[in-house]
């Protein structure tokens, strides 16, 4: 029984790490550009399928090759979207809602592009590409104190750590990173002080798209790859980013742990004590999202209304 709980905690940590890799880039891109990017969903799916296709067609089962490929694909998609759609739209003064719906159009496009490509490829490969179980064992399994730690867990932990360090290094130590933060803090001021917005924002988009795609690989080797992986994860990813107020990367990472633990351990608790079926997991996620929005309304970030439902005097 004790061992069982340790296993659950480990799984929750594993999921939290992946969630962090998925959600932090969403916060990063929102805080820099004020775009809620639905293509984030596609980054995840395309990342997962980078691994699937490399494996199916080239037999590559090295997870780090898949991760590198996913990073490049996600990053490239992300930059292309920005250059062809978001940047021209914002230059024309499109508001937040317009940018959001444009990204929704791209999401639908990419999603069904993926389905179409898979239609063709599965005919070519004569294989099922619609739900694929990838179990790469690039890293060894280890046993710590009698607890088996899977290869997927190790991969997720190491990748998350490397990405966190990379992000920290780029944002804190390089000129580009400082420029990204300046644009996020005050776009007008950044513009005035001569920061080459276009290029800097593209670097940011590349990192954001790449990271989310890497998260897709991590998810694929942990759970399953389907053309809907991104879609099934989006509720969690958005909820986590909202916990981070869509502004704070570290709070977003914290949110990943909150959601992962609430979902898994909280669900296990509700299931055992009250017999709630585990399929109702998303309710925990959504309740957390609502509680966060009600208790800590993110009025600063998304622009808010200076209105108080409960009048208060100090």
């Amino acid at each position: 029984m004790v061992n069982m709980d340790a296993y659950q905690v480990l799984t929750a940590v594993h999921i939290a790490l992946i969630y962090a890799v998925l959600a932090v880039p969403l916060t990063l891109s929102y805080k820099t550009t004020k775009i809620i990017n639905f293509v984030h969903i596609n980054f995840i799916t395309y990342g997962a399928y980078a691994a699937v296709l490399l494996y199916t067609f080239l037999g590559i089962d090295n997870v780090f090759v898949a991760i590198a490929a996913a990073f490049v694909i996600g990053g490239a998609m992300s930059v292309i979207d920005n250059v062809t759609v978001f940047e021209p739209l914002s230059r024309r003064g499109a508001n937040v809602v317009i940018l959001m719906i444009a990204s929704m159009g791209l999401w639908i496009f990419y999603k069904y592009l993926m389905y179409s490509v898979l239609d063709v490829l599965s005919r070519v490969a004569k294989a099922n590409l619609v739900s694929v179980l990838l179990r790469f064992e690039t890293l060894p399994r280890v046993v710590v104190n009698g607890m088996p730690i899977t290869s997927a867990f190790l991969t997720a932990a190491i990748t998350a750590a490397v990405l966190a360090l990379m992000l920290y290094f780029i944002l804190e130590k390089t000129a580009v990173g400082k420029a990204i933060r300046a644009i996020a803090d005050n776009p007008t001021l950044a513009e005035i002080s001569g920061i080459p917005r276009g290029r800097v924002v593209n670097v940011m988009w590349f990192m954001a798209g790449g990271m989310a795609a890497v998260g897709g690989v991590l998810w694929a080797i942990f759970a399953i790859a389907t053309p809907e992986v991104g879609d099934t994860l989006i509720l969690q990813v958005f909820a986590i980013a909202v916990i981070g107020g869509l502004t704070s990367l570290s709070r977003t990472a914290l949110g990943a742990f909150i959601i992962a633990f609430a979902e898994n351990l909280g669900m296990a608790f509700l299931n055992q004590v009250f017999g709630v079926p585990t399929s109702f997991k998303p309710f925990i996620t959504f309740s957390t999202l609502l509680i966060v929005i009600i208790a800590f309304p993110p009025l600063g970030a998304g622009g808010g209304l200076p209105y108080r439902f409960l009048r208060k005097r100090r």
Binding site: I36, V97, L246, P298, A301
Partner: peptide, 13 residues
């Protein structure tokens, strides 16, 4: 009271 981004996410969710 929250901006369109949060409203959109909440309703989508």
């Amino acid at each position: 009271r929250v901006g369109p981004a949060f409203l959109g996410i909440t309703l989508l969710a």
